[in-house]
Write a protein that binds this DNA or RNA. Structure first.
Lengths: 199, 199
DNA sequence: GACAAACATGTCAGCGAATGACAAACACAG
DNA sequence: CTGTGTTTGTCATTCGCTGACATGTTTGTC
């Protein structure tokens, strides 16, 4: 009546996001405190005052409490890639598209670093992150294919190889970055990695 | 004790390997028949006539029944890389070191293809395979670092990037290979992928 | 304001992977 | 045969995760 349903159940979606963020935040605290594997889902649930079952209605897996936003970032990355000028080569466009997420990591200060460190030292999280990484590849692939020249028959293969290699460079750069305690410049590391690969 | 004093005390180790192979074989049959996720460890155990608990004394995880030999291959790969002439560039040496495992895949006929297909379509296996892939990186890294020229400060970073990119190329090539049903030449796919990345 | 549909939550029950503890069966040295 | 060490089975338990059911709580409609 008086209120337009904004965006059809918009309120529900807002509260849902809020609860999700609350869970992720508390979970992150506990994980950093006592480790990811050493923290049970029920502990997280208790910390936010709900049942363990309900937590799984907000996150499909325990890992998603840490990596839940990576899919969003992937979409943002794809959008940024699509927005790059068509003249840029695949490598160039990919590198530029990574600028924004890279800056986000830097501005986030120690929080992103702590997260990256935990991610690097927890096998279960590493595995989950690599899965997201694969999703990114699928999101980015079409926009790289568009930029490919040369024989059409191998276009998909070559585009896929470039995307995968670029993300590998990102991973390596982030790894060295975390090992350095965040002192080294992440964008320089990435540039060096990419240049080395393209030697 | 998942690890072994290996070469010493041969008989025990031999029987152990034999049982391991037996389990892996039966497991593979069941997995291909009814799917990896749809097969319980107890089913595999029953098929080889032992308790579920004992199966876990031969394989640390269910995934290892499929991927158990990947670590060995990694060591073989590292040895092959080390054996390449010192004049070869990192990329060249890595490519040549991959020749043998590639040939093994080809000669194995449909078996390797079926395995690769299941691996590609089962998230849990993909994740585990990527973990082994990371182990490979660590095994190969030192021998690539040896081959690096240029500023020493970034040598590790650049070497790591190249190794990671090379294995990414391998993954992409294998993926297209499985999608093609094994018709396309795997080594050509890999060459094309590497060339594209180094553009 | 009443009512029905949609949604969120708690509770209970269960599956399957993985681990620890203990006892029995076995091989093998002396 | 006896003692030692390894392998295996059995039992119990933890933990991630899912399904089913019941109970409220919103939300939108008449």
């Amino acid at each position: 009546m008086t209120n337009a349903p904004a965006s059809q159940g918009g309120l529900r979606e807002v509260t849902r996001r809020a609860v999700q963020a609350e869970i992720a935040g508390r979970a992150m605290e506990l994980f950093l405190e006592q480790g990811f594997d050493e923290t049970t889902v029920d502990q997280v649930a208790a910390a936010v005052g709900m049942s363990g079952r309900s937590v799984f209605r907000y996150f499909a897996t325990k890992e998603d409490m840490v990596l839940g936003d990576m899919l969003q970032i992937g979409h943002a990355l794809a959008a940024a890639l699509q927005a790059r000028p068509a003249e840029e080569s695949p490598w160039e466009a990919l590198r530029r598209a990574l600028d924004e997420p890279l800056a986000a990591l830097k501005s986030d200060g120690g929080k992103a670093l702590a997260r990256a460190t935990m991610l690097a030292t927890t096998p279960a999280l590493r595995a989950a992150a690599q899965q997201k990484h694969t999703q990114w590849e699928e999101l980015l692939l079409p926009y790289v294919v568009q930029r490919m020249t040369g024989p059409a028959a191998t276009r998909e293969l070559r585009a896929h190889a470039i995307v995968s290699a670029a993300l590998s460079c990102l991973d390596v750069a982030v790894e060295i970055w975390t090992k350095s305690g965040g002192t080294k410049a992440l964008d320089t590391l990435l540039d060096t990695a990419i240049q080395a690969v393209r030697s």
